[in-house]
Nucleic acid binder design. Structure first.
Lengths: 144, 144
DNA sequence: TAAAACTTGAGAGTAACTCTCAGTCAATAG
DNA sequence: CTATTGACTGAGAGTTACTCTCAAGTTTTA
């Protein structure tokens, strides 16, 4: 129960892997309910605050709008009676997260293929670099 | 080489899984060089145009800014002499794509854990729903 | 004790959509 | 043969979620 360690904006931002600007923005949105201030009004984050921010960051990254994240935070602070609604919100994001993993893998596959193609083309190209074979190029349907 | 089929904005948007607004926006940015217009000035997309749009969409999704995508398209249209630069651009996006797959998987893991936790809590909770044990709740460090 | 480093809130700026709207055109319903 | 419906157009306004700038306060370092 000893929660001694506290972090400034700069330190917390580094730990979370987000910018200081974004961290302040998130804190101002109420994404770190247990955040406190020091004698000079500076933000201080404890471990619990970091956990909240991490969670909210995950929710944002899966496409949950700021407003909905705020609502989710409010629900959490209400305790057990909001469990049902929170569960539904999480389930929806879970579905999105699954789709996002697939989408990300597709993009990676595309880029892998492209990289390979270019690598091969560069290998072939280096042989006849000076062959000006673009005299009849029909740019209408250039490959992408 | 027969490229007979053509699609309107609505049809193409559906095929690509993006909104008609976004498709027009992309087309206006030059992401579909082989796009044409019909007698009434309406956009018509052939397969090549769809391929371009898909590619540009992937690049955008991996975080490449519009400006850079435009530059990439311009490079493609220049033909072989831009191969080197295109290769570098693709490599950078490839790196990002790898990181994005990992990040997406982390988010999914987080949401899976959350979903499981809530499911368990709901099971336990249904037993003592009427136990008003929040009299001493210290909200400072509420779990997220 | 002065410069450098860090933080603050307010508010302006930005990227990439996203939407609205008035207007054109073609197909179809009555 | 008109009237409505539906799809499309460009221009431009609106939105979201940051992202950055700035003047001012504090605090550490030289």
């Amino acid at each position: 129960m000893t929660q001694s360690e506290m972090w400034t904006v700069k330190q917390a931002a580094k730990r979370l892997g987000i910018s200081e600007h974004t961290l302040r923005y998130y804190a101002d949105q109420g994404f770190a309910p247990s955040m406190q201030r020091d004698a000079n009004n500076r933000r201080l984050f404890n471990q619990n605050a970091l956990d909240w921010l991490q969670a909210c960051h995950y929710l944002r990254q899966t496409g949950m709008p700021i407003k909905v994240v705020k609502h989710y935070v409010a629900l959490c602070l209400q305790g057990n009676r909001s469990l049902q609604e929170r569960y539904q919100l999480i389930q929806e994001q879970q579905q999105l997260a699954v789709e996002q993993v697939q989408a990300a893998q597709q993009r990676l596959a595309f880029l892998n293929a492209k990289e390979k193609l270019y690598r091969e083309q560069m290998a072939t190209n280096s042989v006849d670099t000076f062959n000006p074979n673009n005299w009849s190029r029909n740019n209408q349907n250039q490959e992408c």
